[in-house]
Design a protein around this nucleic acid. Sequence first.
DNA 1: GCTTGACTTAGAGCACGCTCTAGCCCCTAG
DNA 2: CTAGGGGCTAGAGCGTGCTCTAAGTCAAGC
Lengths: 124, 124
Amino acid sequence: MMIGEVAEKSGFSVHTLRYYEKIGLLPTSHRDGGGRRSYDDDVLRWLEFLSRLKDLGMPIRDRVLYARLRTEGDSTIEARRRLLQTYRDALAKRVISLTETLDVLDAKIASYDTTGTPLKGPRK
Amino acid sequence: MMIGEVAEKSGFSVHTLRYYEKIGLLPTSHRDGGGRRSYDDDVLRWLEFLSRLKDLGMPIRDRVLYARLRTEGDSTIEARRRLLQTYRDALAKRVISLTETLDVLDAKIASYDTTGTPLKGPRK
DNA sequence: GCTTGACTTAGAGCACGCTCTAGCCCCTAG
DNA sequence: CTAGGGGCTAGAGCGTGCTCTAAGTCAAGC
């Protein structure tokens, strides 16, 4: 696969993929005869996982750290586990908080719908 | 209340509160004799709501829009409802997606814990 | 053999959302 | 009456994470 196809399938832009390689989120690519990057399917699964880490709010430097640990092999498994655990716990709290926010919004929207104004009625 | 107390109670910095006023997220403050901003308790509830909107991912320009609509009175209620509804729906999807991510992380962490390595065993 | 289009690099530029600095003023306590 | 701890303004600066540009190379089809 050339980089354009990876971009299309992963949802990351070509620019972003090269940037990710430069900062160490993607391993140094194999090159074809003409010097172009050549990928196999594994990269798509890795990018999907990276995009989850990004989406849950892990900053790029910790994604880079995780990527680096991964390349260093089995001896870093415990460190990787701890890193993921930290973000997992933060995420669990975040999901709870966002669920509360969903309720707050629903209440607000309902107050707009039913009274025509949230300021009339028994206070708010 | 002076700005320092609002900062302490709301969790936003003094700098940020002045910035929020400048861009229209907070209404123009009343001033005391010496030209200092003077707030009443309402601002804390508004800041708490703003911080929820921020937390769910509403960009600052839409928070400013919402704040502006609010100052324009009841005629903007329908517009405000639509704005909140849009972000509410996106948030609902996001909560689902983050919940999936939580499962993915738990599975990954479990694989680290039980096998000592995620690469051994029946293929990952 | 030439055009087209996807690829290459290094490095500049950008949007967002603050965050901080400089130089000033004002109020209160000792 | 002075020191200290707020507060004030305008505007510069910054961290994050891309995003884009310029100038060039390469491979395949007509």
